[in-house]
Amino acid sequence: MFEARLLQGSLLKKVMEALKELLNEAAWDCSDAGIQLQAMDNSHVSLVSLNLRAEGFDKYRCDRNLSMGMNLGSMSKILKCASNEDIITIKAQDNADTVTFVFESPDQDKVSDYEMKLMNLDQEHLGIPETDYACTIRLPSSEFARICRDLSQFGESMVISCTKEGVRFSATGDIGTGNIKLAQSAKVDKEEEAVVIEMQEPVSLTFACRYLNSFTKATSLSKSVQLSMSPEVPLVVEYKIEDIGHVRYYLAPKIED
């Protein structure tokens, strides 16, 4: 028996928004520790890793590990039926071929349940090593979304360069060039509004704007986002999900031929 009850159901709705543009289907791996999902987009350029810890749920029960293959388009349709204020419970029997979503209104006067067919997914899991990155940049998530949107107008690719002085985002195309420089915040009232750079060595990498824009669908999950870069390895874009976990996106860089 698997059962996970989330008081703040809107978080699951936001998680779905953060996943569905990149992934058509994914396996939700449930264990004692919580729910994890790891999947690459169709073209294997990016990888999404979601972690929702058991302690973040109001109620969590997982008698045996299970992997639930879900069509995210279908799951998204179902979660659209939940109100932002609803409490959401995900339930499945051991070895079941369906999963049930239960939505309770805050005062319990409306309860809906939706049963969805599970899929058999034979997905590869990738081992992602713990890495000390040469640069980490924390910035407001809305600022990052704005930068990705603005620079996408100029070209398909964006160069992210990080030095001690700050971080520079650049894109070049037919109409010209756009450069956005962010300096480390000297003084901020609110932690989440800060730009904080930690740098061991300068890094400059090129990434496809299309994927970066897809990652920013997670903006509503967190006020800030962390970018981690090292030479010639995938960029990590991490959004924390309140007290429950995180979604991380890995994006393979573009490399000179």
Binding site: V45, L47, L126, V233, K254, D257
Partner: peptide, 14 residues
């Protein structure tokens, strides 16, 4: 022009 690399190039398949 720069070529797009792929994720499996960097991470080991378990």
């Amino acid at each position: 022009a720069a070529a797009q690399s792929r994720i499996p190039h960097y991470f080991e398949i378990l």
